[in-house]
Computed example of a mutant assay.
Amino acid sequence: MKTYLNIADLLKDLNVKSESIHPGFHIFKFNETSKIAADALNPHLKTFFTIDFYADNLSKRQIGTTKVEDLTNSIAFNSPLQLFSVHTSNGIPGEEGYSLLFGADFF
């Protein structure tokens, strides 16, 4: 299982092209992702916080030990070192929403 030690490594696996304004902070639209690496979808850990705003969710998520079928019109909070994975049926995790990533140092 992969552990993302910094935001830049996750953004690389998500294939997000936008630039970060600070190494400990990034926000992006879900539709900015493409050709997502398997490590970013398979169960993994992050050493930073994430807040995801889902307007449309086409996939199942596992957050910690909780499996979620539908996060449409929801907000999900992930703490550092909390298990996270995405299970898609068509390879597309969803296009409508935002992800906010930040480290404790940015706080």
Rank of each mutant, 00 (worst) to 15 (best):
L45C: 08
N31Y: 13
L45R: 10
A40M: 05
D9T: 10
K35V: 01
L10T: 01
T47L: 12
V68C: 06
V16E: 01
F53R: 05
K17L: 13
H22V: 07
L10N: 01
V16M: 01
K46W: 00
K46Y: 01
E69N: 12
K60V: 13
L71F: 06
P43Y: 06
S20P: 10
I21W: 03
F30V: 00
T33C: 13
N31L: 09
A40G: 06
L14Q: 02
P23D: 10
K35A: 13
T50P: 01
N31V: 04
L41A: 04
F25S: 04
A40D: 03
I51T: 15
L10G: 01
I36N: 04
D13P: 03
F30E: 02
D39H: 08
K29D: 11
H22I: 07
K67Q: 10
N42F: 06
V68L: 15
F48W: 12
A40R: 02
I21M: 11
R61G: 00
F28T: 05
I27D: 01
S18H: 07
V16D: 01
K17N: 13
I51Q: 14
N42E: 15
A37E: 14
I21L: 14
D9I: 00
I36E: 04
A55M: 10
H26I: 02
T47Y: 03
P43E: 08
L58N: 11
K67H: 03
I63E: 02
K46C: 14
A55F: 11
Y54G: 01
F53P: 00
E32M: 09
A55N: 10
F53C: 08
L11G: 04
T33Y: 00
D39I: 03
D13L: 02
T72D: 07
N57V: 08
I51M: 14
A38Y: 04
L11V: 04
D70M: 04
K46N: 15
G24H: 05
A38E: 15
S59E: 06
L14M: 10
H44A: 05
